[in-house]
Amino acid sequence: MAEASRAIRASAVRLVLNRVAYGAVTLLLVSAVIFLITSWLPGDAAQELLGQSATPEAVAALREKLGLDRSPLARYGAWLRGLATGDLGVSLAANTPVADLVATRLPKSLLLAAVTAVVSVPIALTIGIVSAMWRGRRLDRSLNVATLSMVAVPEFLIATIAVLVFAVKLRWLPALSNAVDIGSASQFFRTYAMPVLTLCFVIVAQMARMTRAAVIDQLNASYVEMAVLKGARPAHVALRHALPNAIGPIANAVALSLSYLLGGVVIVESIFNYPGIASLMVDAVTNRDIPVVQACAMIFCFAYLLLVLVADLVAILSNPRLRHR
């Protein structure tokens, strides 16, 4: 028996390690794609950056600084090594290490994402489960139309309307969320209310729709009919029978929706002037500050893969078929 349970644990561990390895391979492929795109500049990048009037010496110096005198593969290798050791290169625009820029911006973005997640996940799961339980009824149909419309609305419409209502008309909140010296709860609220509201708007709808689909999928299973025929009440059927089976798909839905934050945050940070990593990236794209663009893109992709990995692990650990083979 002890041997059997050890074997079980070993197989679960192997499955988990498999997923982690798969994630790592994907991350490597992603880095190759990003590097390929960002270093595929037509012509001489140094010349382009400095303009036609630059002296040949200056161009040569920049080429050396950018490593353009080495082969693309060697540059990719050096870049990867840098990523692994935390050396993200030097910003062309600010002439400071990219790592320093990221270090000041990343925590702010993570905080914004965390607040959004804390607000959106419970609301979305409640909407999704309730509408699955009452599927086909009027409540479900109206929620369906509402969420369907919400996912298609651009963030800047929500943001502009929010500013118009809360900052311009009602004057309750400041229009910008600079996130400097937050000292009190009310200040925190004033800073985060509108960005979080905007982000939640789309994410809640998306997450609720996926949760609903996952729960309905389970409610159509024959073990649910069996539970009904055992005399179980609807809440018992949904929460004790269907929900445990939907944990894997729901975790996946949450991960995918939160990963949408990574894109949505770009618009929101820029509209509210929030000093996070996404606005850093937008500025870098505008200035064609490639090292910063590369680093930010890798951070976003890493975050995405991490979310998906966590969802996968939740699915594995919640499923007895994968836990006890």
Partner: peptide, 17 residues
């Protein structure tokens, strides 16, 4: 691998380049 690059990021990277 391509799917794990959020599409807005991919677009930003491409526009930058």
């Amino acid at each position: 691998a391509l799917i794990s690059i959020p599409s807005k990021m991919l677009a930003l990277v491409m526009v930058a380049s």
